[in-house]
Design a protein around this nucleic acid. Structure first.
Lengths: 121, 121
DNA sequence: TTAACTGTATTATCCGTATTAGTACAGTTA
DNA sequence: TAACTGTACTAATACGGATAATACAGTTAA
């Protein structure tokens, strides 16, 4: 379900946050679905429970999951609703596109890239 | 010329690398143009020369600049030619676009984003 | 030739933070 | 009751970013 890359310079809890956020936001994990317990995920990944707890804590304060003491942690129904992350991602895309253009990537190349992953809408 | 953001969690030498790479790749700095000396830039930014040296070292091994002992460091003529960075950036864009779609950003929104920064080609 | 510049290299140290470790407490559930 | 859940806290460790202080060799201009 989750995999870690120890060559990645980013902290483990950041990697976990990103992977879980992706699962939730993409619908791979449905609303109110139970996440692995802090201890279970920690033992599965062979890392310390505190590291998982930190990831869960931050995901909760960002609105992606909610935790119920004694019960577990669950995917939020309204995950990523506030639009803050959307703005963040859009800004990143603009930065990247800007540099790509200077690197010689044409407008058509970029359009093709978009069409590639279209599928529905 | 270069500015630092100490609130940014990324290391200073990474920020410097990014800014310089952008200047070179965008043509804001022309081929074989001399970069500030290690010591000059360090004193301008009020940081340690070793930090600048690290940024320069890595930029050189990535092909964006070349250094001549005793003379200085200069922008490479064929900066970013190998395409490795291009691939890296394209992959990032795809990742971001994928998540943006799940967040409800429409295909049209993304197209608009591209048109926005078009200008030439 | 001298003085001031350049890049490069080396070593030691400080400090923040990611991570681990260990423990404890309270609510939930079978 | 026993085994699970999230949560909280403190302490210790480890690693990497950044600084500090030098030193050396090549370049350049006075």
């Amino acid at each position: 379900m989750i995999s870690l890359n120890y060559r990645d310079s980013r902290p483990i809890y950041e990697q976990i946050k990103d992977e879980l956020r992706k699962l939730i936001v993409t619908g791979a994990m449905s609303a109110d679905e139970k996440l692995p317990s802090v201890r279970a995920l920690a033992s599965q990944l062979a890392i310390n429970p505190n590291t998982i707890q930190r990831a869960y804590n931050e995901l909760e304060s960002e609105g992606y999951i909610y935790s119920v003491p004694g019960k577990g942690s669950f995917a939020s129904a309204d995950a990523g609703t506030d639009g803050a992350r959307k703005e963040e991602l859009l800004a990143k895309v603009q930065e990247l596109v800007k540099e790509l253009r200077y690197l010689g990537v044409t407008h058509e190349d970029l359009l093709a890239l978009l069409e590639e992953g279209k599928e529905h809408d």
